[in-house]
C-alpha cells in the first residue's frame, strides 16, 4: 500500500527506533499506529493539547509535527511516565485529588508538567499557567489538576532549594 516507504529514526522513551512512515504522516498518527495509545487525538490542530509529547524535553503538539521532523530527536510519551505499581509523583497526586475525570486530557497535562519540571527550578504561578495553558480540559474546571500540580511543585521547589544549599 505504501509506495516508496520512507523511514524515520528517533529515540522513543529512551530506545532508539526506526519506523516506516510517509512524508505526510503526523507524529501523533505514527505513535498511535505503533501502539503508543496514551497520546490522544483531540483536535489535530494544535489547540487542545491531548496529543502533547516531549521532544528533546520540550512539550510539543504531536498532531502538528510531521513524523520526519522527529528524526534524531528524543521523543517521550506518557508510556514512559509511571507504572501501575509506581505512578509518577504527579500521577499519584492527580489520582489522589480526584483530578482524573474522563481522563482524556490527562496524559497531555502530565507531559506538559514534565516539561515544566524539567526546564524550571522555581514555579511561580504565572509560569505554571503558561506551561499548562495549551492543555484543555472540559471536565474538571482545572481545580483539582491545579491543586495536584501545586502539591508536586511545592515539594520539588523545597527539594531544589535544599539541594542548592547543600
Amino acid at each position: 500500500m505504501m509506495k516508496n516507504p520512507q523511514t524515520v529514526t528517533f529515540t522513543l522513551n529512551g530506545e532508539r527506533k526506526t519506523f516506516i512512515t510517509r512524508p505526510d504522516e503526523k507524529l501523533l498518527d505514527l505513535l498511535r499506529r505503533e501502539g503508543y495509545k496514551g497520546t490522544k487525538f483531540g483536535c489535530g490542530q494544535g489547540t487542545c493539547g491531548a496529543c502533547t509529547v516531549l521532544m528533546d524535553g520540550r512539550a510539543i503538539y504531536s498532531c502538528l509535527l510531521y513524523s520526519m521532523q522527529a528524526e534524531n530527536r528524543d521523543i517521550r510519551t506518557i508510556e514512559s511516565i509511571g507504572t501501575h505499581d509506581k505512578p509518577s509523583e504527579f500521577q499519584q497526586e492527580l489520582i489522589a485529588a480526584g483530578a482524573v475525570q474522563c481522563g482524556y486530557c490527562i496524559p497531555g497535562m502530565i507531559m506538559s508538567a514534565e516539561a515544566l519540571m524539567k526546564a524550571e527550578k522555581t514555579y511561580p504561578e504565572e509560569v505554571v499557567r503558561e506551561y499548562m495553558d495549551g492543555n484543555l480540559c472540559r471536565c474538571t474546571g482545572y481545580e483539582k489538576i491545579w491543586d495536584a500540580l501545586q502539591t508536586v511543585l511545592a515539594r520539588r521547589e523545597a527539594a531544589n532549594k535544599a539541594k542548592a544549599k547543600s
Binding site: G38, H84, P87, Q91, L94, I95, G98, G103, I110
Partner: peptide, 21 residues
C-alpha cells in the same frame, strides 16, 4: 468518602481505554 476513582490510575498512565485505542 472520597475513595480513589476506580479507573484513575489506568487513565493517568495512558493505558489503552478509549474507542480509538
Amino acid at each position: 468518602h472520597s475513595v480513589t476513582k476506580v479507573d484513575a490510575r489506568q487513565l493517568a498512565l495512558g493505558k489503552p481505554s478509549y474507542v480509538d485505542d
